[in-house]
């Protein structure tokens, strides 16, 4: 089943064209990796899909479950099952992590016609799900991401993914800033959430994450387009040869 269809997507930020015609198709049950150098447009693609207000879509279309994604504001995209794990998770001082998680969870539940959980019920749920990322429950009582280390922020992102149960999760450089133990934990968390009903897109510079979360497809972006698609061996080849040989082809 086609989950995401990106056709000729063009987008710009502050008048500068970044995406110059991206084509991508993702089916339920698949894991995709998008690789590329800094500035190739891979993070922009994630933010455009999530609806970040700083980016303007200038061409092409995106269908999510057959629905025009750009007709939906960011919160509706989350409600229909799109999730972006941020490269730099935002600190929200004064908003308790547990209250935020519960509000987000209940909002999504309601939009799916399911019952909300009261604080006690939610506490049980979140303490169960938090095990997925081996996160200290003390982080639930703190302000959202405030003063969290890089690794703790990324775990908090995957905890949100575990709670919101998205159809498509885009992990934007979730591996950056993680030491090898944290990387393993986060990757295990993501793997435990994989199913034939959902799909995962990993945006990353490096091959090492792909040792833990093995992709079905690897795409290489350059200058705002996907210039090559292959299987997991493409990532190994990139690790060995760098990106230059692809740029020459493009």
């Amino acid at each position: 089943m086609k989950l995401l269809e990106v056709k000729g997507l063009k987008a710009s930020v502050e008048g500068i064209s970044i995406l110059r015609g991206v084509d991508l198709e993702i089916n339920a049950g698949e894991v995709h990796a998008i690789m590329g150098l800094n500035g190739s447009g891979k993070s922009t693609l994630s933010k455009v899909l999530a609806g970040h207000p700083s980016y303007q879509v200038t061409g092409g279309e995106v269908l999510f479950n057959g629905q025009d994604l750009f007709e939906l504001p960011p919160e509706e995209r989350a409600r229909v099952g799109l999730f972006l794990a941020f490269q730099y998770p935002v600190e929200v001082p004064g908003v308790s992590n547990s209250a935020f998680l519960r509000l987000a969870y209940n909002t999504i539940q309601t939009s799916r016609g399911k019952d909300e959980l009261d604080p006690l019920e939610f506490d049980d749920l979140v303490r169960e799900r938090i095990k997925v990322v081996e996160m200290d429950p003390a982080f639930l009582d703190r302000s959202v991401n405030e003063g969290f280390s890089g690794g703790e922020k990324k775990r908090n992102e995957i905890l949100q993914m575990a709670l919101l149960d998205p159809k498509l999760a885009i992990l934007d450089e979730t591996d950056s800033g993680l030491d090898i133990d944290a990387l393993r934990i986060v990757a295990n968390g993501v793997n435990s959430l994989r199913s034939e009903h959902n799909a995962i897109v990993m945006v990353t510079h490096y091959q090492r994450l792909l040792n833990y979360i093995v992709p079905d497809f690897v795409h290489v972006m350059d200058a705002g387009r996907i210039v090559k698609t292959g299987d997991k061996t493409l990532a190994l080849e990139l690790e060995e040869r760098g990106y230059d040989w692809l740029r020459a082809v493009a």
Binding site: P74, E75, R77, F86, V90, V92, G94, A104, T107, L164
Partner: peptide, 22 residues
């Protein structure tokens, strides 16, 4: 901060309220 909260399903009005309360 607003976008982050909205990307988790909160309406803009909910997100604003949450940040103002904070």
């Amino acid at each position: 901060e607003l976008f982050y909260l909205m990307s988790r399903g909160l309406r803009e009005s909910q997100a604003r309220k949450l940040l103002i309360h904070a």
